[in-house]
Write a protein that binds this DNA or RNA. Sequence first.
DNA 1: TTTTAGTACCTTGTATTGCAAAGTATTCAA
DNA 2: TTGAATACTTTGCAATACAAGGTACTAAAA
Lengths: 109, 109
Amino acid sequence: METNADNVRAQMRKGMLEYCILCILAKREAYASSIIEELKAANLIVVEGTLYPLLIRQKNQGLLTYRWEESTQGPPRKYYCITDKGREQLKDMDSAWQDMVRAIETLRG
Amino acid sequence: METNADNVRAQMRKGMLEYCILCILAKREAYASSIIEELKAANLIVVEGTLYPLLIRQKNQGLLTYRWEESTQGPPRKYYCITDKGREQLKDMDSAWQDMVRAIETLRG
DNA sequence: TTTTAGTACCTTGTATTGCAAAGTATTCAA
DNA sequence: TTGAATACTTTGCAATACAAGGTACTAAAA
């Protein structure tokens, strides 16, 4: 069963994931499983069924591109890379995030 | 038309509103229009059609109660008030929020 | 008295999001 | 050639917020 606190976190995570993906890809290109690992390291649990449609969405919006790369272990990997348009969007998201942080401070203080 | 930056903010706002409502009601009781005003003052634009179902949801979960109060100008107002259960939920949300802030710092840094 | 404006509450239909679950495809080793 | 591991994809569902419209009460103007 899902605890209340889990649900609270799940709700907050919604809408933040696109920002998180761009944050990760702004530093280096990556493929889906490695993105999931990095999110998990930051305590944001995301599953494949969530991430793949999201990457496809961002690619269709021109925020990302990808290239295939052979792997020594298993099938080839789709490495995603942020575009110039993606970096602009990331700037918008940075400022939206900071506004949100300020808004919560205002309400909570 | 809606700008890209507007959409970014709308997405981030999702899942944060329940937290914001509890933040406001933790300080004082309030009715819907005054909650909207306080959110607007924090640069979080929310409309009635969003807020009313949300207040009803939180009331049904036992996080809020309300009482009617006559107004000198216009119809009576429904003043909402946070419950003990609501304050517990608020604690969970505070910690979920701080975890989210830390997660973004980790990813962005 | 009737109408109008202002305030406040509520509902319905819709688009979007993330998730669970299941499916497809490739590689390599047993 | 079968199975395990890895990786990518799709489908159906529940939850969220919003746009748009509706109901109801009060007080002032016509």
